[in-house]
Design a protein around this nucleic acid. Structure first.
Lengths: 122, 122
DNA sequence: ATAATATATGAGCATATATTCATATGTTAT
DNA sequence: ATAACATATGAATATATGCTCATATATTAT
């Protein structure tokens, strides 16, 4: 996994630059946290769920209908979103209503969409 | 995979709401594109690479040094980032320098960091 | 031309993860 | 209490993916 051996044998690595980056760079823990969030966004089913509840709360049943997925699959994904605190939920009788927890999520998606559209132009 | 059977047998699904969401919602293709981008961000190694070149270009060798990963692993990930057009590269002699392609990427990461920090407070 | 170096890439393996099936839990109606 | 329903969850399976090893390609120096 690690590599203690030679990488560049000559004067290739720009040590000054590397040290600068090391200092200014986002910490390893933050990278982990970021990675976890992006993992949640990385799955199509979860993304569809997230986008579905961008502006409204929906019950599990609604989501099954909307995504045409079976209830177990939806619940499993909701479980992940819940335990990562990306969504909140509210019980009302037999139903459970899910919605997003903060508006950063919408902004992240908007940024990503902007990136996609920019890519299309090029 | 699909589920044509009953989901909610009673009057649970909020059909009006569902139709509204269906109309206003992000299209399936866009979801796919979004998912692909977020997949790229979801891996720690790739994230570390991306963050390393947020403000400067680096050669493969630098990245190996910085991330303490072997050259093959780094090149494979760079290949992915390249084919997804998230990074650009520039050859100079034996070295290849990588940098980010647009600034949306930085914004996406900033938003995600904001989300993390908000989560910490709660 | 040969050697050395920097990077790229294919194959194989190990791990992670999304879905399905079966079943459990919790809620409402009778 | 029992039945019907909405949701949750554990186990198993299939697929995706990241890493390593070996090797290929490209560039420079001798």
């Amino acid at each position: 996994m690690e590599n203690d051996e030679f990488v560049c044998k000559e004067n290739c690595p720009h040590f000054n630059l590397i040290n600068k980056v090391k200092l200014s760079n986002i910490g390893r823990e933050e990278i982990q946290d970021l990675s976890e969030i992006f993992k949640l966004f990385a799955d199509e089913t979860r993304l569809r769920i997230i986008c579905a509840i961008l502006n409204t709360e929906l019950c599990v049943c609604d989501l099954c209908e909307l995504l045409n997925l079976n209830q177990s699959a939806v619940s499993h994904q909701l479980q992940l979103l819940r335990s990562s605190k990306l969504v909140k939920y509210r019980k009302e009788g037999k139903q459970v209503y899910y919605s997003l927890k903060d508006e950063h999520i919408e902004n992240i998606i908007k940024m990503a969409l902007a990136h996609i559209k920019e890519g299309d132009e090029a």
